[in-house]
Amino acid sequence: MKPEDLERLVSTVMPFGKHQGTFIADLPGNYLNWFAREGFPKSEIGHLLALMQEIDHNGLGDLLTPLRPPR
């Protein structure tokens, strides 16, 4: 993992599927866990999904709070 990967979690949107348009950092845990069971895409999005699943699974979502843009 690179530090810039964390920033990309809060700035990259899911490009396909049920949660298309949702920031990767905002995807629900059950959706991330589904990818973990079925297999992450072999792409940069897959890398970010796997990282977010690991963060979510370990209860570390608050690490992303300071990186989120102001709303």
Rank of each mutant, 00 (worst) to 15 (best):
M1C: 07
K2G: 00
P3E: 06
E4K: 10
D5Q: 08
D5N: 15
E7Y: 12
R8G: 02
R8S: 07
L9W: 04
L9H: 04
V10W: 13
V10A: 15
V10Y: 05
S11M: 12
S11I: 03
S11L: 14
T12Q: 07
V13Q: 09
V13W: 00
V13A: 08
V13H: 00
M14F: 11
M14D: 09
M14L: 14
P15T: 13
P15M: 11
P15L: 08
P15Y: 12
P15A: 04
F16S: 09
G17T: 11
G17V: 03
G17M: 03
K18V: 15
K18A: 07
H19G: 02
H19V: 10
Q20C: 07
G21V: 13
G21M: 09
G21P: 06
G21C: 10
T22Q: 13
T22I: 15
T22A: 09
F23S: 01
I24C: 06
I24Y: 04
A25M: 03
A25N: 07
D26T: 04
D26G: 06
L27Q: 01
L27C: 03
P28F: 04
N30E: 11
N30S: 12
N30I: 11
Y31M: 14
Y31E: 13
Y31R: 04
L32F: 06
L32G: 02
N33R: 10
N33L: 15
N33Q: 14
W34F: 11
A36S: 05
A36Y: 05
A36T: 12
A36Q: 15
R37T: 13
R37A: 08
E38G: 01
G39I: 03
G39M: 02
G39W: 02
G39L: 02
F40H: 09
F40I: 06
K42Y: 09
K42M: 14
S43R: 08
E44A: 15
E44K: 13
I45C: 04
I45Y: 02
I45N: 01
I45S: 02
I45W: 01
I45L: 06
G46N: 11
G46T: 03
H47L: 03
L49R: 05
A50R: 10
A50N: 02
A50F: 02
L51R: 04
L51I: 13
L51C: 05
M52H: 13
Q53C: 14
Q53H: 10
E54Q: 08
E54L: 02
I55D: 06
D56H: 11
D56Y: 09
H57A: 15
H57V: 03
H57C: 01
G59M: 07
L60G: 07
G61P: 00
L63S: 01
L64S: 02
L64H: 01
T65H: 07
T65W: 04
P66Y: 12
P66I: 10
P66V: 08
R68A: 05
P69K: 14
P69W: 08
P70L: 11
P70S: 06
P70Y: 00
P70G: 06
